[in-house]
Design a binder for these strands. Structure first.
Length: 281
DNA sequence: CATCATACCTGTTCGC
DNA sequence: TGCGAACAGGTATGAT
């Protein structure tokens, strides 16, 4: 569920809390999450936080960067200086701070701390040279990104190249970055397009509608701080609220708000797919 | 090459 | 009520 809006929400808080901080020590509590030599980043200051699709980049002042993907249940949780108010930790902070699911602890200056929790351990944090961040590894493989450099022309062209189901295509990060299951379901409903339609059978008008719907739901996700359906929280430990505004995601068995038809759910590409058989033909 | 199914992991929900 | 099966979904990988 962390998709573009969720990861952006994490990025914005990390910028606020980490830029200017020094990483004094990296404590690796469980193997398999942190990759690379942690001593390379100890003593370095965070100068910038960037996001590429669903990936985060922490740039340091010694020509090294940390690249991270939180996948489904990764959480960066910050405690310390500049934190607004006495922050209330969401119950979704699985295992609590420094608990059973805390795998990496970044000890920062000013007695501040950044915890990486990940219940399902799908996420990762890698040490890279800053100059390699965009030219090697995960980020290099990403396609153009929604709300960034991905325009309608690129979108239509990608659709024309494959007969794969439209929902599977718009979630393919190598073709177009940012959209995951929640926003894909909502955008397809908003654009009144059947998730199973072969991408190359989508008309010019429909493609435009879908492109606009994707941008619309992503913007709504950004405004609401993302969807905290499962384990998503931001570094101050709080939740987003997009889950209260979903258009069709999670609504199987309820009536479509547009036409009253009962929403169905089925698996497409191994993912939960929500469908109004009337609106989405 | 393109496409698809499965693995990764663990807490929660579902069905009998 | 209890317990095992299915489910949640982003991505890598092996299979077709």
């Amino acid at each position: 569920m962390p998709e573009l809006p969720e990861v952006e929400s994490v990025k914005l808080q990390l910028q606020k809390y980490l830029v200017g901080h020094k990483i004094e020590k990296v404590e690796i509590k469980n193997n398999g999450i942190f990759e690379g030599d942690s001593s390379k980043i100890e003593g370095a200051n965070v100068i910038e936080i960037r996001r590429f699709g669903k990936a985060l980049v922490f740039d340091l002042d010694n020509d090294y960067s940390l690249v991270s993907h939180i996948k489904l249940t990764g959480q960066f949780i910050y405690r310390g200086k500049n934190l607004s108010k006495p922050p209330k930790l969401s119950k979704k902070v699985t295992g609590g701070l420094d608990g059973a699911h805390t795998h990496v602890v970044f000890h920062l200056d000013h007695n501040s701390t950044l915890y990486y929790n990940d219940m399902r351990r799908f996420g990762w944090i890698r040490v890279m040279k800053t100059e390699d961040v965009e030219s090697e590894g995960f980020i290099k493989k990403l396609g153009k990104e929604f709300l960034k450099d991905l325009d309608l022309e690129y979108f239509r062209n990608e659709l024309s190249k494959t007969r794969r189901a439209i929902k599977v295509l718009i979630m393919d990060q190598a073709k177009m970055a940012g959209v995951g299951n929640i926003y894909a379901n909502d955008a397809l409903w908003d654009a009144k397009i059947n998730p199973k339609r072969p991408a190359n059978m989508i008309s010019t008008d429909e493609a435009k509608r879908l492109f606009e719907s994707i941008e619309k739901v992503l913007k709504k996700g950004l405004e609401t701080g993302g969807a905290s359906e499962l384990a998503f929280v931001t570094p101050d430990g709080s939740e987003g609220s997009y889950q209260d505004f979903t258009l069709i995601y999670g609504k199987q068995g309820t009536k479509c708000v547009r036409c009253g038809t009962v929403i169905e759910k089925f698996a497409l590409g191994g993912r939960g797919t929500y469908w109004c058989h009337k609106c989405q033909e």
